[in-house]
Amino acid sequence: MFQVRIHGRGGQGVVTAAELLAVAAFNEGRHAQAFPSFGSERTGAPVVSYCRIAEQEIRTRAPVEAPDALVVQDATLLHQVDLFSGVGPDGYVLVNTSHTFEELGIADFVSKFRADRLLTVPATEIALRLLGRPLPNAVLLGGFAAMTGAVSIDAVVAAIGQRFSGAVAERNADGAREAARVVEQERSERAATD
């Protein structure tokens, strides 16, 4: 079972992100369970959602305590919420930011994670450019797919197409593919420096 926790703020589509991820896994014929951290879905408030992906029926209803992957949709949460709780040294972390970890002031903290599994994507910038709105959720999932391989980018794009329609679907899909390229490039750069 692959477990994901998504952090963001109300209005950024945190819950939708988990649902899209679940649909992507479902599209691949797998079992998935997405659910929000309940009741705090107010604009601007910290919000958490979860997604589990597995090859067999998912029975547990417990919140995800030890995620295999973490998606941070809003980097301003880094200093407010204990985002990394339960993430092991092999965990994947994807942060939506156009800054470096040094600039965010968490370089020391994140040094304990594997460099090829700790990546950033300027998803809000991509979303603003493509969608005209700062909605990073679907874009980030492209990066997530590229980083973890837990779902394919095609399944993510298909899920986006099922959820949205017309230009919104197309541009989100474009954003997701762009984020995937960013992640792949970033990872190859990291691999080169390692």
């Binding site: 705090s40 408030a45 910290p46 919420v81 709780s85 339960g86």
Partner: peptide, 13 residues
């Protein structure tokens, strides 16, 4: 009182 973030340590909220 709080968000379901109880999991992610309520003390940090």
């Amino acid at each position: 009182s709080g968000s379901g973030l109880a999991v992610a340590r309520p003390g940090s909220q």
